[in-house]
Nucleic acid binder design. Structure first.
Lengths: 264, 264
DNA sequence: CGTATTTGTCTTATAGTGTATACAAATAGC
DNA sequence: GCTATTTGTATACACTATAAGACAAATACG
């Protein structure tokens, strides 16, 4: 709609064609339209099409043969991790994934307005801020930024945070974790996040924001998790049930729905 | 990581600064760093910074005063719709949103490999494909592509689809809808979707894919929903429970979790 | 074999993006 | 009022992206 600052034509074409392949619309072995055809369809020059195809070829998704055409490669499907039934971290273990954490930042800061509001504290009250990278099979898949009121943050060390789940550390001290609100959205990878996750700037990311409260309604933890959608996504099974005359969807089992929450 | 086909510097800066404002990190009234400072920080020229700021100003997020600086506007927060407790469509109604649907495409086609595999049918078996746009308060917020086996698709008309929920039409015929699998991810807006949703190409979108089965395990519906994250996101409340020695998250109530599913 | 098609390579031209620099005009603060 | 700072404006230049076209080389297929 708005003209704004557009992405380049090459990139648009690149993203579009790449998506058609990775989504499964174009199966391995399929021949793509010829370069002139693609150029006409996307309303760009052949040079632009070729640049986009060159990049996709470099990624190994297609192979091009002079005189023959461009073909979708029988790609090795790098199946994304899926938060599923049962605890997500346990689920990763089942899949034989070696999962780990790298602590990127740790310190005490003044909270941003957003965090302060969510945790219901004053902007002047200092909070512990940590940035962690979660890794499965040597490959990072989520970027976690947590904010914790300092009175709770001081109960564990930087080293402990680098190895144990944050909620475990919090509950260890006797804090009564009661409930949480979480929101799932999509955003773009900003420079720092992009570098950590090994993606390009401007890549789409799954975003989960969770605010945790104790039994007295006090804010305990503010978590923002950014996931690489090609390596991680949320999945759930649903069953159709009758509810007061209406038919509704319900989670197939409680553990399944819970996994979305425990997936850091 | 990969160099690929990068987005322009202006766009990177634009996205970064814009995000810092809309995320709440920079509150209304705050003064941004001066243009030379921003240029040094982002490692671009001042001209590039100015182009990015000009666009953000055009969107009304900042105002610039010569000699004084650039300030975050007391913006009108266009609160995004949030799929919440209780049926999502009902939820929209509660919020006073006038929600509607526009049927963009309707026809019978051969399914893509992805759809065929998900519905467990043959690629040669024709399916009904529809593209709908869901609108709230005159503004589109979701782009829906559905694929339905033709034996089910023929039981309702194009007109009916333009006004009633698809599952209602399906169940009306006596089809026993049993269960579904759904996956939530993030993608980029492709040209056609971008135009329909009124966003720029390359914008991040929330993506939900749901595959519905009947009691006999036959695929009934394949739905891909793309949401504008600034107008729609998923939210759920969780409670911390004991489960076999471990402490886990559980949906605050079943209806809440179900709303995610019923939110088209 | 011979022809049409396809990818690969090259040239030329135009528009867009990014940088560097200088100076003007408005503002804030002392 | 004076000065430092900030945004506004203009110019010149380098580099990249895009386009249009021509031709070569490889392939498929009747």
């Amino acid at each position: 709609m708005t003209e704004a600052i557009a992405t380049s034509k090459t990139r648009r074409v690149y993203l579009t064609l790449r998506e058609r392949i990775t989504s499964g619309e174009l199966t391995p072995g399929t021949r793509l339209p010829s370069e002139p055809e693609l150029a006409a369809f996307h309303d760009v020059s052949r040079v632009t099409i070729r640049r986009a195809l060159a990049e996709i070829e470099r990624e190994g998704l297609i192979s091009r043969r002079p005189g023959a055409g461009t073909f979708v490669t029988s790609r090795m499907v790098k199946r994304p991790i899926v938060a599923d039934l049962s605890n997500a971290l346990a689920h990763l273990a089942e899949m034989g994934k070696a999962t780990g954490v790298r602590l990127l930042q740790f310190g005490y800061v003044e909270p941003t307005a957003e965090v302060a509001e969510a945790l219901r504290i004053d902007t002047s009250e200092r909070v512990q801020r940590s940035v962690r990278l979660r890794i499965a099979d040597e490959e990072p898949f989520s970027y976690l930024v947590t904010h914790v009121p300092s009175r709770i943050g001081v109960t564990y060390t930087e080293t402990e945070l680098a190895s144990l789940p944050l909620l475990t550390l919090i509950e260890r001290t006797g804090t009564k974790v009661d409930r949480a609100t979480q929101t799932v959205t999509a955003t773009l990878a900003r420079p720092d996040v992009a570098e950590a996750l090994g993606v390009e700037i401007g890549t789409p990311l799954l975003s989960l924001t969770r605010v945790v409260f104790d039994v007295r309604g006090r804010g305990i933890e503010h978590l923002t998790a950014l996931y690489r959608p090609d390596r991680y996504s949320f999945q759930m099974d649903l069953v159709r049930i009758d509810a007061g005359g209406d038919r509704l969807w319900s989670p197939a089992d409680r553990a399944g729905a819970a996994s979305m929450a425990t997936a850091d």
